[in-house]
Computed example of a mutant assay.
Amino acid sequence: MTNATALVLFSGGQDSTTCLAWALERFERVETIGFDYGQRHRVELDIRPDILTQLRAQFLAWDDRLGNDHLIDLRSLGAISDTALTSDRAIAFAESGLPNTFVPCRNLLFLTYAAAVGYRRGLNHLITGVCETDFSGYPDCRDDTIKALQVALNLGMDRRFVVDTPLMWLDKAQTWALADEIGGGALVDILIEHSHTCYQGDRTHRHDWGSGCGACPACDLRAAGYTQWRRGLERLPTS
């Protein structure tokens, strides 16, 4: 563990919860930030406090390190976005070739607002769960995008921020494995029972990998990763 401080972009999803656990293992003080941008799966914001409560209760060493949670109102982004994540429409590919779940500037704005909060709170690491391996074609999840934004933030704020992306080169199975490595079965259970990934905001259908509609791209990715990870565990030799 280092004596550096961190601000985790924490949506309440599997990836950001895994990143939060990753940060709590490494940093002396960790705060969290979430964004209400008018997302149709707004239920993810409702379950964020439950996840934080579970992490505090089940990982006592993390309790003292886990600080304030910040929730930022960015509903203006949803108001100007014509996407399947911010309006009730079928998920499909747009004429650009990108899925219509892509919300333009979302991650750029999230990290910029996080940097503003980090500047005020004295938090020098910004941690996000973006991933180029399973990024669904989103250009603001690319490693080059994040590196360029880190340079811009440091120049524009005259402050040394480090944008950490623990999942950048991991597929979803490896993300499940990382959670297991960090927190064992207890953390995996928190991910299954409490984190939310489904684009439809469905918490009524329960699967081995958690709750969700089971049909949207986010559910497909999460389910396939879970299955691949579990099969990998079954192939491990027993002592």
Rank of each mutant, 00 (worst) to 15 (best):
T133L: 02
Q228R: 08
D69F: 14
L66W: 11
P139N: 05
N124T: 06
G78Q: 08
C19D: 07
N68T: 15
R121K: 15
G185H: 14
A152N: 09
G78S: 05
C19M: 02
I192H: 07
R120H: 06
F10N: 01
D46I: 13
F102E: 04
G97P: 03
T238Y: 00
N124Q: 08
N154I: 03
H207S: 06
T18G: 05
H205V: 11
N3I: 02
R160I: 06
L221W: 00
E181R: 15
P139C: 08
L187F: 06
G156R: 11
T197I: 10
T133A: 07
A6M: 01
G156L: 10
H194V: 09
D82P: 05
R65H: 11
V130A: 03
G12A: 00
D36S: 13
T18E: 04
A173Y: 15
G137Q: 02
L111Y: 13
V103S: 03
T86A: 11
A218P: 05
D64H: 14
G210S: 12
A173R: 12
L108H: 03
Y37E: 05
S76R: 08
M168W: 09
I91H: 11
L60N: 11
R206S: 14
G78Y: 05
C219W: 01
L123D: 08
T112A: 06
H70P: 11
R206K: 09
A186M: 08
E44N: 15
P237W: 02
L55F: 14
I190D: 10
T101Q: 01
E193P: 09
T112W: 06
C105Q: 09
E95K: 07
T86C: 15
M157Q: 12
R106F: 04
G137H: 04
F35L: 10
S87K: 15
R230D: 02
V188T: 12
M168I: 15
D134P: 02
R120M: 04
G183E: 12
S195Q: 08
R75I: 12
T165I: 08
R206P: 07
V103M: 03
A21D: 05
T133W: 00
H41N: 08
L191S: 02
R222K: 02
I146M: 10
D64V: 13
S11M: 00
D73A: 05
T2S: 02
D88M: 10
R222M: 07
T5C: 06
